[in-house]
Design a protein around this nucleic acid. Structure first.
Lengths: 131, 131
DNA sequence: AATTAAAACAATAATGATTACTGTTATTAT
DNA sequence: ATAATAACAGTAATCATTATTGTTTTAATT
């Protein structure tokens, strides 16, 4: 197996994700780092996001909007997608800890995990509404 | 608003989905109906899958594998994705009914729903294993 | 039953996200 | 320092999906 060498681009991508909680897409990471790396390539961003998520240093979120989002916070937590503005927020809720084992006990195969995300309207988008 | 007219292709697409529980992709629907409609177009399949799911007559499942799956069973139920063979199965579990309102009560916006799917190994893929 | 307007079709082009390839540069071991 | 190779930038290719164009069905009206 190839030895992984250091790269400032990869380091910057990881730092970029850790420094924010808005779950950017590959394109947003690319745009956000262009000022620091003027000839950064989108391919480099994609490759390193894949490397980092494969190593478990970041999370790849597939939220069903057709675009992958990335999260520098690898602690287990829940996500909310606003149907108004599309933003992705973290949720502070517990109560899903036993869900995997509950499901597993009702299934003849082996259930090892689950993906859950919530949707609705975020606080901002709820404000400008009457209904 | 345009009046929806009858089409045998759309009817066949819906029947195809109702007749199975393996949650096919657009491409699988297309291939499955080619024998009955030799000059069926993939565009027609996509358009009608979108029409049917917009009307709520079928479900579009975005399971994170980059391909949309479709389900003729619109009753609320849970899904399981096998990481061994990729197949998508229905799960008979309840206990998630109150999840949306639980989450909503902890959130300052408005949560109206959630998406949950489970993953692991299906019964078949569990068999041929030692670990 | 013929006419007609619009929906649906087939075929295919276009799009957008992601992945793969090619030649160059940077990192690390010798 | 030199050499080996991982990582890079740039770009081409891929894949699922959506949009477009011209033709055919459907269904309402004469």
């Amino acid at each position: 197996m190839a030895v992984q060498k250091y790269s400032r681009q990869r380091e910057a991508i990881k730092e970029f994700l850790i420094g924010r909680t808005d779950h950017p897409t590959a394109d947003m990471v690319y745009l956000g780092l262009l000022s620091k790396f003027p000839n950064l390539s989108l391919g480099t961003v994609y490759r390193n996001l894949t490397l980092l998520s494969d190593k478990g240093e970041i999370l790849r979120l597939r939220l069903g909007d057709g675009v992958d989002h990335f999260d520098g916070n690898v602690m287990p937590h829940l996500h909310f997608i606003c149907q108004g503005c599309g933003r992705v927020m973290d949720l502070e809720i517990d109560g899903l800890e036993g869900l995997t084992s509950l499901a597993d006990s009702h299934f003849s195969g082996k259930i090892t995990g689950h993906v859950t995300y919530f949707y609705g309207k975020c606080p901002d988008c709820t404000k400008g509404e009457m209904s």
